[in-house]
Nucleic acid binder design. Structure first.
Length: 114
DNA sequence: CTGATGACGGCGC
DNA sequence: TGCGCCGCCATCA
């Protein structure tokens, strides 16, 4: 591997972070942004998801910070995401998922000044 | 350049 | 838990 920092555009790193989500595990937009090295860029993650048409991308494992589906309740995307999550064994109640608490270190990183 | 928009997020009530 | 307000960012009209 090259000893230098990974090239990758922000978009590439975000997509990589999403692909890295194990089956049956979920994460918020903010956490994905953190893992991509882009603290506070949750909205960028959302835009990428809506724009990319990459096949096989586990987009359904990305939820809002409060554990709810980002799509409007009742919409086609909303139902599709719930279906996919439940197919992986994720418990979804009324469009909401129990997210594991964010670690203090990540919490600090999120609030750290840029 | 200005204002609106969105698969967001934190905070207050 | 629910709802509204505001901040932040990239894109678009």
């Amino acid at each position: 591997m090259s000893p230098v920092a990974p090239p990758a555009t922000p978009e590439q790193r975000i997509l990589a972070a999403i692909r890295a989500l194990p089956r049956g595990q979920v994460a918020s937009y903010g956490v994905i942004a953190l893992r991509a090295g882009l603290p506070g860029r949750a909205r960028l993650v959302a835009r990428i998801l809506g724009h990319t048409g990459e096949a096989g991308l586990p987009w359904h494992r990305v939820l809002r910070a409060d554990g709810r589906i980002a799509f409007p309740a009742g919409s086609a995307g909303w139902e599709e995401q719930i279906r996919r999550l439940q197919a992986e064994g994720v418990q979804v109640h009324n469009g909401r998922v129990r997210l594991p608490p964010v670690e203090a270190s990540l919490d600090a990183a999120l609030w750290a000044p840029r």
